[in-house]
Design a protein around this nucleic acid. Sequence first.
DNA 1: AAAAAATACGAAAACGTTTGAAATAGCCTA
DNA 2: TAGGCTATTTCAAACGTTTTCGTATTTTTT
Lengths: 335, 335
Amino acid sequence: MKRSAPTIKEIAKNLNISVSTVSKALHNHPSIGLTTKERVQKLARELNYVPNQAAIQLRKQKSSIIGVILPTLIDQFFTLTVNGIEDYALKNNYNVFITQSHESLTREKELVDIMQRAQVDGVIVAVSKETTSYDHFNALEKAGIPVVYFVRQPKGVMLRNWVSCNGNEAAAKAVDFLVAQGHRRIAHLKGPDSLLTSEHRYEGYKDALLRNNIAYNADLIKVCDLTKAGTQKAMKELLQMDQPPTAVLCFKDYMVLDAMQFLRKQSPTNKKKMEFIGFGNLPMFEYFDEKPLASLDERPYKIGEQAIVLLLKLMNGPKEEGYQNINLECELIEY
Amino acid sequence: MKRSAPTIKEIAKNLNISVSTVSKALHNHPSIGLTTKERVQKLARELNYVPNQAAIQLRKQKSSIIGVILPTLIDQFFTLTVNGIEDYALKNNYNVFITQSHESLTREKELVDIMQRAQVDGVIVAVSKETTSYDHFNALEKAGIPVVYFVRQPKGVMLRNWVSCNGNEAAAKAVDFLVAQGHRRIAHLKGPDSLLTSEHRYEGYKDALLRNNIAYNADLIKVCDLTKAGTQKAMKELLQMDQPPTAVLCFKDYMVLDAMQFLRKQSPTNKKKMEFIGFGNLPMFEYFDEKPLASLDERPYKIGEQAIVLLLKLMNGPKEEGYQNINLECELIEY
DNA sequence: AAAAAATACGAAAACGTTTGAAATAGCCTA
DNA sequence: TAGGCTATTTCAAACGTTTTCGTATTTTTT
């Protein structure tokens, strides 16, 4: 029963008119008579005509597809950004092509290639943690496909279109909050060195210590690699200090989870000796019996939305008008 | 600098050969001389040639895209199925187009339309909870696009290609487990009536009661609508019974979460009076201090993988050879 | 040396759509 | 009645590939 889908051509033959008339009629082109328009549209409906995207894309040299590259979808933060992207894309007649790099640079490069073959009109990407060179994305831009970076800011390459939350300010806000609660020994589980985002949050942490007159202690800083093992190794080191911290600011809520879990396993009795704040405001916290002290909401939906707004601007606007950075303000959510 | 991407045509002109030769050379066609092959491939690499998917699709009448329609990506269960689908798809040179219906039938229909325009070669879908009519999917199949249903089985329409876990067996397994732990009053938070999956699990629950010589009590069954409010309303009713249940089997782990949360809020003191088992084996449980008793792992990765294996078979195999059902066995995970 | 076979390449059509220019028809005006 | 409008429709090219078939060239066979 493999009926080949009806085309504009068949409609034309059926009605004894030309294909161009049909095409225009379907698009409500002003130069087509009202009666023919109606005849065409009626028949199209009856035949269940559905336009062939490939043909349109080929002819128009435009796919109406936005490519999105994420490190992973398991992290609910990213699925929330997807919602922000999708909603806005749909309103503007774009489809969204969601992919995962699984934190692998190799995979990320493959995805870029796929995007290019698919002729996506633009790309939104949160780079993998392995990504240090941006050649593949530069190639995209050179080919005329604008790229918006979000959430994770590329390091080294300064001038980029990107949108994220203001990690600097947010980290400072968190430290202020902890200090207000009486904490003086505040550790920081820093994000991977490859991400500039890690630096921002780290800077905010330092700034806030300074303005609260707390001496900076390098031993309280641990760089983590976003794995459970990495986080727990860091925690172990912190616990072995003469004076362990009383509070920890984490690069991500997932670190908070791993850290708290580690703590629970280490000393099931005297738990709750350490307070945590991370970035993410994970939806799952709602269900936790024992929550972290607070979390910094990165506004994932908003970030996604802003990213695609910026992307559409780049796609339609004048070619070059410098790069744009958007820094959303994080909200500190107390639990 | 909007350089238009290099095409096969330019390579041809550059090398003073025909486009057909170039095309064949790029595909290692046997009828092309070794030297020309090398010349072509070298130049293609130099020019950064990337094939135009739209043109290929138009010519071949095949998109090499698998469409996936999910209720939501926030539910980590579904993101795990996506991984199973993606991995297998990639190995077979298919791209995956992931979309969310957000449990809305209207949206689901729009997505089907988008899939059809994109000429996807096949569709994998977990229907929205609102879906009771399958006309839109039938239209897809009539148009020659095979559909595989997974996770959520359509009701009413018996003969379908679908893959899921064996809810019947799994529910029974859970009840057996609860009985072994001494429970006799076991409630069941049933899934939405629109899903056959709900029925299966319910049947398994009943069967297991029977074979354990426990009288079936209709008051212990509450139908839920997958919302927090719905679940908590059900829990409230259960708690108000003269003899509340001591254990609850839930259609989904998310119900377990909502139920436990409700319990915690109701009586912070005497919590842990009720045991829970749900479907899902949610990754986040790892981080919970107070976990449910157990969970039924639906093998999401495997389900996704089986779904696409079946889909590819339908796409390539002989047109009609009856419908296929695949029922994976769930695993009971004790926490 | 002629015929046959193998090898390498090219011409052209086709996939379904869009779009500006050109054509046709009908009608009005002078 | 010729000329000029307007309203509607058609022509034809183009987008980038793939693929069938044909042809020219070379090599092998007799």
